[in-house]
């Protein structure tokens, strides 16, 4: 082995999804280069560094599935949830932090302790990202607005900074099992789709144009109007506090909420 090789770092560039990152974890581990000689990355790679060798990691359900099972059995559900939520947050170091958290956890006598090791920087980052993703996903559980289309389908658009679709879809699938519904993430051009009484799926590369062709149902305007009436009526004028309202419900969430739109795009 040349001394040069010891300096080299192999960077595994993974797709920015849970599957992508876990595949990266698999490959990095499998490379047997030693943990200090590998790094995981997601996203744009403009700044290539010297002494780094870049390899692309195509997402692989089998590999990701194996890592996933290891996480669940050895590190516990809490760690799994941390990793799943954190992977939805945009952050340059998240894939690497997830990798190192897993490595560290598997070294512990009881891997379940890893989710509480907040003194460890990688765990801390994953913890913070999870908190952020959960926070935002939880808000979307409330702020998503469905419109009823002519064919009875409930349709919603969002524009989220975090990739929340897979985090919120299970909630809506449980809540509205008998409905056909779809939540469209305009920023990522993908959609969570739920046919009545079936499981939900994520469709990638859905163009917004295609979706704008549908008409609303006849009842839609009626209930949309009633909701606006209600929303106005519940506010107490002598306690009016727009700053407070804004801090709980910042502008960025309001775009697709009908009570804040005078004329809503259909």
């Amino acid at each position: 082995m040349s001394s040069c090789h010891c300096l080299m770092i192999r960077v595994f560039q993974c797709e920015d999804t849970l599957t992508g990152i876990l595949t990266g974890v698999y490959d990095a581990w499998d490379s047997r280069l030693g943990h200090e000689h590998v790094r995981l990355e997601t996203g744009a790679y403009e700044d290539m560094e010297l002494f780094c060798e870049y390899v692309q990691v195509p997402p692989d359900l089998d590999k990701a599935g194996k890592v996933l099972r290891t996480i669940r059995t050895r590190l516990g559900e809490e760690a799994y949830e941390m990793i799943a939520y954190a992977s939805a947050c945009p952050h340059t170091r998240k894939a690497d932090a997830i990798y190192r958290m897993i490595v560290l956890g598997l070294r512990l006598p009881d891997g379940r302790e890893i989710s509480r090791m907040l003194t460890q920087p990688d765990v801390q980052l994953v913890f913070e990202l999870r908190r952020k993703a959960w926070h935002i996903a939880h808000r979307y559980m409330g702020f998503v607005r469905f419109q009823e289309l002519g064919n009875g389908v409930l349709f919603s658009k969002i524009d989220a900074e975090v990739d929340v679709l897979a985090l919120i879809a299970p909630h809506f699938a449980d809540r509205l099992p008998l409905e056909n519904w779809m939540i469209y993430d305009r920023r990522r051009q993908k959609a969570a789709v739920h046919p009545a009484q079936k499981g939900w799926v994520i469709l990638e590369e859905v163009e917004e144009k295609v979706l704008s062709e549908f008409e609303n149902s006849e009842k839609e305007t009626y209930y949309d109007g009633l909701w606006k009436v209600f929303h106005r009526a519940v506010g107490i004028a002598s306690r009016s506090n727009e700053r407070l309202q804004m801090s709980f419900l910042p502008k960025k969430f309001r775009h697709f909420m009908n009570e804040f739109a005078d004329s809503r795009e259909s």
Binding site: G142, L178, L244, Q245
Partner: peptide, 19 residues
């Protein structure tokens, strides 16, 4: 049928008084 509940509850909007 329709509906479920989650322990923390969910806020769906905020009125002009910030509630």
């Amino acid at each position: 049928g329709i509906g479920n509940c989650i322990t923390p509850g969910i806020c769906h909007s905020f009125s002009a008084d910030g509630r």
